[in-house]
Structures are given as structure tokens and as C-alpha cells.
């Protein structure tokens, strides 16, 4: 009983700190993320430079802190796209049923048949690279997951006795949908939202790493790791530490998703 709660606490703390990085980076680091001090280049982590410095003497921790805003806002946009489009599609399919359901779900099958990254790359060919485009691209990839979950939840709840009993109590269709079906369907969707938030951060950093996201001086997390690749043999911190931050954030989002999923089950 005690241990899982500690996990949840740590996860919330990680997300809170990263959110603060994004909102007020100045509180956490005094170093400039863009301008380097060439004399201090490629220094290993120390008390002065927590994460060390890169090839042009920029403080890596400052770059990670300042970069969080790109990852987080991108993930927000991506999740918003997936959540809104996907959940709407799913609710529509689940509550309308019949041919509408069939049509929506076949469309979702199609989305599902193309791997997320390829779908994102396709959207990038269409819209061109850039932070917002990457976020939209990643969001498109999660539409299918949201739609399927939302639909299956609506269908499950609609089959329950209490929904029938609500009709039996004289409820009209929209009232029953609003009062019973929606509140009871959304729990798992919210859990998926938290999970997808982490997945979006992963996907955005992947696209950033491949060079389709922010332009080079920007301290986007994926880009940081890509830049650090050239110094693999000598400066392990340039790739290892930003990546560890990504892992921590994604793990935290997953942990929170699980606890939401459990409390709404």
C-alpha cells in the first residue's frame, strides 16, 4: 500500500519540476542556454556545470531546462490533437452505432495500419519540419488509439444495466449519454491521455533527433542528443544526461497514467 504511493509521489514531483523548468527556467539555472563560454567547452559534470558543457562551452543543464518548454508544449499540442479528434471520433462511433460506427472504425483501422512514426513523417513531408508541425504529426499518430479506447468504453458502458435503468427511469437519449455514459467512459481515456503525454514526448524527441523538429541552436531534447552524438567517445554526458531526463519524464507520465487507470477502474 505504501510503496506504490511513493512511486506516484516521485512521479508527480518529476512532472511538477519539469513543468516549472518550462514556466520559469531562470529559477533553476543562471547559465545562458544559447551563448557558450568557449573556454569551458566539453567539461564533465561538476558542481558548476551540473550536466557538464558542450562543444561550444554551453551549460548542458541550462539547455535541458530551457529545452523543456519545447518538449512539453509540443506534447500538449500533440495530446490535444489526439485527445480531441480521437475521443470525438470514438464517442461518435460508440454512441451512434450502425453504419457511422462502421465507417469511423474502418478509418481508424487505416490509421492504425500505418506505424505512428511513418504517419508523422508523412505529415512532416506535407507540412514541412518545425516544432508545431512535429506536434501535429505526433498527435495524428495517437488519434487511432484514443478513438478505439473511447469507442470501446462507450460501447461497454452502454451495455450496462444502469444505463438501461436510466432509460427505464424515463431518461432521454442525450440526458442518459451526458449523465451516465460519458462520466463512466472517460476514466480510461484520461489515463490514456497521461500515457500519451509521455509517448508524445518520446516521439517529439525522436523527430527532433532525426532533425525534423526545432532548428539547431534551440535546445530541444532530441536535438541535444543528436548534437552530442559526435562526442560519444569522449563526452558521455552530452547524450546520456538529456536522455535520462526524457526517460524520467516519460516514466513519470506512465506512472500517473497507471494510477488514474486504477482509481477509475
Amino acid at each position: 500500500m505504501n510503496r506504490p504511493k511513493t512511486g506516484l509521489l516521485v512521479a508527480s514531483l518529476v512532472l511538477a519540476v519539469v513543468a516549472l523548468w518550462a514556466l520559469a527556467p531562470g529559477l533553476f539555472t543562471a547559465h545562458d542556454p544559447i551563448a557558450g563560454v568557449p573556454a569551458e567547452k566539453l567539461q564533465a559534470p561538476s558542481a558548476r556545470h551540473l550536466f557538464g558543457t558542450d562543444a561550444v562551452g554551453r551549460d548542458l543543464f541550462a539547455r535541458v531546462v530551457h529545452g523543456s518548454v519545447h518538449s512539453l508544449s509540443g506534447a500538449f499540442v500533440a495530446v490535444a490533437v489526439g485527445l480531441l479528434l480521437g475521443t470525438l471520433l470514438g464517442l461518435l462511433a460508440g454512441s451512434a452505432g450502425g453504419p457511422v460506427d462502421d465507417a469511423v472504425m474502418r478509418f481508424v483501422d487505416v490509421l492504425l495500419s500505418v506505424p505512428g512514426l511513418l504517419l508523422a513523417l508523412t505529415v512532416i513531408i506535407l507540412l514541412g519540419p518545425g516544432t508545431v508541425n512535429v506536434a501535429i504529426a505526433v498527435g495524428t499518430g495517437s488519434v487511432a488509439a484514443f478513438a478505439r479506447l473511447a469507442r470501446s468504453e462507450v460501447v461497454r458502458v452502454r451495455r450496462t444495466d444502469y444505463v438501461e435503468a436510466a432509460f427505464g427511469s424515463g431518461g432521454r437519449y442525450p440526458v442518459v449519454l451526458w449523465r451516465h455514459v460519458l462520466p463512466n467512459s472517460l476514466g480510461p481515456v484520461i489515463a490514456l491521455t497521461a500515457l500519451q503525454f509521455g509517448m508524445a514526448i518520446l516521439a517529439i524527441s525522436t523527430l527532433g533527433f532525426l532533425g525534423y523538429g526545432a532548428e539547431p541552436p534551440t535546445p530541444e531534447w532530441g536535438l541535444l542528443i543528436a548534437e552530442g552524438r559526435n562526442y560519444l567517445a569522449t563526452s558521455w554526458w552530452l547524450t546520456t544526461l538529456p536522455g535520462a531526463v526524457v526517460v524520467a519524464v516519460v516514466l513519470a507520465a506512465g506512472r500517473i497514467s497507471r494510477s488514474i487507470g486504477r482509481s477509475t477502474a
Binding site: Y162, E164, G170
Partner: peptide, 24 residues
């Protein structure tokens, strides 16, 4: 219904459940 648990919306309070037909 046979199964009273399944026929009551788990998210509603007892008062809300009993009131529902009156509201409808």
C-alpha cells in the same frame, strides 16, 4: 434487475440515483 450493483451508476450518490426519475 437481478444484480443491484450493476443497475446502479457507480458514480452517482444514492440520493441522485433515487431522484433520477423525478428529474426526468
Amino acid at each position: 434487475y437481478q444484480n443491484p450493483y450493476g443497475s446502479l451508476d457507480p458514480r452517482q450518490s444514492i440520493a441522485e440515483i433515487v431522484e433520477e426519475p423525478l428529474r426526468n
